[in-house]
């Protein structure tokens, strides 16, 4: 059909504040080593292969080509759907889609068409050696977003029974619950939900950062004085313009 050259950019910032393992005694970063417990030696990357465990505990080696598909880097649109048909449980990771040079027009046409039809595209793609399903949709009128999906078969079915019980609920209880829910209904305002825990962790890190532990920075007085001096100088310069 039509091909559109695009690039993907991860849309969501990692919420995790990266923490490392340190040796409590000396404060150094812990190192991970690949160690073979049979040969009693650290193993070089060239000597490492991947294998799958068999039910009897043995392993078969899976050669690197067999471990994943050759990266195709193509996002192939398969079909178009109403967004609510695809359950949120399948969504994995969101990406901004950026058109590459020459692809702007086709990109815009697809974005606008999806916007106008209120449909989303279901696609297959290979990203980092992994096949997956994806949804391409228009996020804002002219911007495409891609969501990588789990394959539907990955859903663990066991949870479907959790709601099967015989509790009797009266109409009155239903009405009351409904009323309560309706009363608490409100427009979703993204800004109402800041990540407080992350902010607190960042503050704890800041408070523990070395300036707090060590003697105050001796350069600061110099900086204050030099700032005052700069301001005084700029006042005098404008007050007595140099003569030509």
């Amino acid at each position: 059909m039509v091909s559109i050259a695009v690039q993907l950019f991860k849309a969501m910032e990692d919420e995790k504040v990266e923490l490392h393992l340190l040796h409590k005694v000396c404060g150094s970063r812990i190192q991970y080593r690949k160690h073979c417990p049979v040969c009693h030696m650290d193993v070089d990357a060239s000597e490492v292969v991947r294998g799958a465990e068999l039910p009897d505990g043995r392993y078969v080696v899976v050669e690197s080509e067999a471990a994943g598909p050759a990266p195709d880097h193509t996002i192939a649109i398969v079909s178009f759907h109403d967004l609510p048909e695809i359950d949120p449980v399948l969504y994995r990771q969101a990406y901004w889609v950026k058109p590459l040079a020459g692809a702007e027009k086709a990109y815009r046409l697809l974005a606008e068409t999806l916007q106008d039809t209120h449909l989303v595209a279901l696609a297959t793609m290979a990203l980092r050696q992994k096949f997956s399903l994806a949804v391409v949709r228009s996020m804002e009128p002219h911007v495409l977003m891609l969501h990588s999906l789990y394959f539907p078969e990955s859903l663990r079915e066991g949870g479907r029974d959790f709601g099967q019980n015989q509790a009797a609920i009266s109409d009155k209880e239903r009405d009351m619950a409904k009323m309560l829910v309706m009363q608490m209904q409100e427009p979703f305002v993204a800004a109402n939900y800041p990540n407080e825990a992350r902010r607190e962790l960042l503050e704890r890190i800041q408070a523990a950062s070395p300036q707090g532990v060590h003697a105050p920075d001796e350069a600061v007085t110099g900086e204050v004085l030099s700032l005052m001096e700069q301001l005084r100088a700029s006042v005098e310069q404008t007050a007595h313009p140099r003569q030509a």
Partner: peptide
Amino acid sequence: ESNERVVLSEGVAGQGVRLLEAVREK
């Protein structure tokens, strides 16, 4: 005298408007 805890504020005489400009700049 300015030291590592206390810094003496140094002002200018007469030139309030220009100092405000400089302060805003900074």
